[in-house]
């Protein structure tokens, strides 16, 4: 029917517009990072790498990179560990107040970051733990663990629960069944969860900005530059940030979907 084709075309066109809108800021930022003009607009100036050179020769940038990497790796590891424990508990056990338990684990992403930022700042100052690199790590672990739990829980969902009991019946202790059956099965999800949570931590700026004190992560450094002027260096740093977090998210998704499809 003709109307059907028309609708189909309209929808494809609309999807195209949506994806252009979603990816425009990322692409623009990459293009302008190589553009010579001080104020980024069209027509473009000439090709240059001077913004990258300025950024690379700035010791503050490298300091921020080190802080960011340290924070995101540590929070990624902690969040993945906690996420695994929670996902496994949810998969394996039934108990009273399990609903409350799951809610406690999953709630952080539903609280606005600005509120968590203030709460964390106040609480960490109170217990004498604010303004340190590990203050950011503590806060980011809270934010990231639910994502890790979600990813790992989805993977465990595909495991036959009898697999573990079979190992017990063959004489394995719970610990060795964990080590030889559950962990190998969950391994791709653990890697995936680690990459995803590392990306979340790497990009987070509100909470970091509040609790980090003088230890700026890259997004916090960007935030502070933004309060001044339009600085084309931001495009160069931004491209670096995009590249890092996109790579992490893509790896996380590829590992997760590859294993999921193979086993089903």
């Amino acid at each position: 029917m003709n109307t059907d084709r028309l609708i189909r075309w309209a929808i494809w066109l609309y999807l195209l517009v949506v994806f252009v809108f979603v990816f425009t800021p990322i692409i623009t930022s990459v293009i302008f990072s190589f553009n010579s003009d001080r104020f980024p607009t069209v027509p473009l100036g000439s090709f240059t790498t001077k913004w990258y050179q300025t950024v690379i020769s700035d010791p503050d940038f490298w300091k921020a990179v080190r802080t960011s990497l340290l924070v995101s790796v540590c929070s990624g590891v902690l969040a993945t560990l906690i996420g695994f424990c929670t996902a496994y508990t949810d998969f394996r056990y039934q108990f009273r107040f399990k609903g409350a338990y799951i809610a406690l684990a999953l709630l952080p992403p539903t609280i606005p970051l600005i509120i968590l930022a203030l709460a964390m700042l106040a609480w960490l100052s109170k217990i004498g733990a604010s303004g340190q690199v590990w203050s950011i790590i503590i806060a980011h672990t809270v934010l990231c663990a639910p994502f890790a739990m979600g990813v790992i829980r989805l993977r465990l969902q595909q495991m036959d629960p009898d697999l573990e009991s079979a190992a017990w019946n063959l004489g394995a202790s719970e610990w060795s069944a964990m080590k030889n059956v559950v962990l190998p099965f969950a391994k791709p999800a653990l890697v995936s969860a680690f990459c995803l949570t590392m990306a979340v931590s790497f990009d987070e700026f509100t909470v970091s900005w509040f609790v980090s004190g003088l230890n700026k992560t890259i997004p916090v450094a960007i935030l502070e530059v933004l309060q001044g002027t339009v600085d084309p260096q931001i495009n160069a740093i931004g491209t670096f940030v995009f590249f890092t977090s996109m790579t992490l998210v893509i790896i996380a998704q590829l590992i997760f979907t590859a294993r999921t499809n193979r086993s089903s």
Partner: peptide, 26 residues
């Protein structure tokens, strides 16, 4: 493809819009 931007620096994407939407922007 949609999951990627959700986890990709919102701050930098906003800065990008700032440049695009400016008075003499793209």
């Amino acid at each position: 493809l949609l999951i990627i931007p959700f986890f990709t620096s919102y701050l930098v994407r906003t800065f990008s819009w700032y440049v695009i939407l400016a008075e003499s922007g793209v």
